[in-house]
């Protein structure tokens, strides 16, 4: 647990939107903004936040599907954006991704067998016979029957497709899996199956897991540490029980209060829990991005961007007044 697996230093990703036309000027969109994060070998990091907060972009950056605009990402100590293409290609075996949409993440024109074999063929792991045997083996590990392998994705259920997605991700025996909302599109009973499978695979293979989700109860269940993102920035990073005991950042507190839970205390009839709209990411507020929605905002929040700073043991927060707010709440 003590070895750093992935380290992000000042990572940012800026898109330019609205350009392309002859007359419109492109405006910068800071999808990910100065993110510093280290992920330890074998740990499960939960990444939560609402749509547009940058959690998907961050996972694509970690997967090296995109290049960061600023900063560097060190995977097992190497900045793979600074090495030749072939070195990146070789390194890709080590980190794999699981996607949200079980159907859209599989090529509808390929059978499950070909989907699973593709990774092994790309890296020429063994003879054809060896690859064929390995495909059946990983399929079995992921709870698929041999007859599932000759089916096309549309002939399978969502849960089965997600099992194929997981099998594809572990085919190359990676050390890191980035799971981007892997159970959001599934029914509750299937969700449990896939979460169990992810937990099992992680234990068997000693995987590091980055688990991205908007569903707080799932993240609370699976993650060791949780990072909360808001408009491209990590605003709180804490061990799971510290965070779910009531976060230090007002946004985390709002998220936790808003999450629907099947317990009587969650019945808040008639009272609004959350305030305000998410500001446009094209025109974020100055200083602290959460300021316009924050009940504790003061003048300093307008002026100064709060840095992610130590709050307690292993718990960091990007809020100027976290201590004051905590005192006020008790």
């Amino acid at each position: 647990m003590s070895e750093i697996h992935v380290a992000l230093e000042g990572v940012g990703k800026t898109y330019h939107v609205g350009g392309g036309g002859m007359f419109a000027k492109a405006r910068p969109l800071y999808a990910v903004d100065d993110v510093n994060l280290t992920v330890m070998r074998g740990e499960t990091l939960g990444l939560v936040g609402e749509s547009g907060c940058g959690k998907s972009t961050l996972s694509r950056l970690i997967m090296h599907l995109e290049r960061p605009s600023t900063g560097r990402i060190a995977f097992e100590g190497t900045d793979l954006n600074a090495v030749p293409a072939n070195a990146l290609h070789a390194a890709r075996q080590k980190f794999q991704m699981v996607f949200q949409d079980p159907y859209a993440s599989l090529n509808a024109r390929m059978t499950a067998r070909r989907i699973l074999a593709e990774a092994l063929i790309n890296y020429r792991v063994g003879s054809r016979a060896a690859i064929a045997a390995r495909v059946e083996e990983i399929a079995a590990v992921c709870g698929l029957q041999p007859y599932h392998l000759d089916k096309y994705p549309h002939e399978l259920s969502g849960g089965q497709c997600q099992r194929i997605g997981l099998a594809r991700a572990i085919a190359l025996e990676p050390t890191l899996i980035v799971a981007d909302e892997p159970v959001s599109a599934l029914d509750v009973s299937i969700q449990a199956q896939i979460i169990n499978l992810i937990l099992d695979l992680q234990r068997q293979m000693g995987l590091t897991l980055i688990f991205v989700s908007h569903d707080l109860s799932v993240v609370a269940h699976i993650a060791d540490r949780v990072a909360v993102m808001y408009l491209g920035r990590i605003i709180e990073l804490a061990p799971v029980f510290d965070l779910f005991a009531g976060g230090a950042h007002p946004y985390t507190q709002m998220l936790l209060a808003a999450a629907p839970r099947p317990v009587p205390s969650a019945r808040r009839r008639g009272q609004a829990v959350a305030a305000g709209e998410l500001p446009s990411p094209l025109d974020p507020p100055s200083g602290c991005h959460f300021r316009p929605r924050c009940p504790f905002a003061r003048e300093r929040c307008t002026r100064e961007r709060p840095a992610l700073r130590p709050y307690r043991d292993g718990h960091t927060v990007a809020c100027h007044f976290a201590e004051d707010i905590a005192a006020e709440r008790t």
Binding site: Q100, D101, A104, S105, N122, G165
Partner: peptide, 23 residues
Amino acid sequence: PYIAAAVSIGTRGVPLVMRHVIP
């Protein structure tokens, strides 16, 4: 997403186009 998935498992260049894009 299946294109991102293919890139993740190391498919690139002509096979990416022939296997995933054209079909």
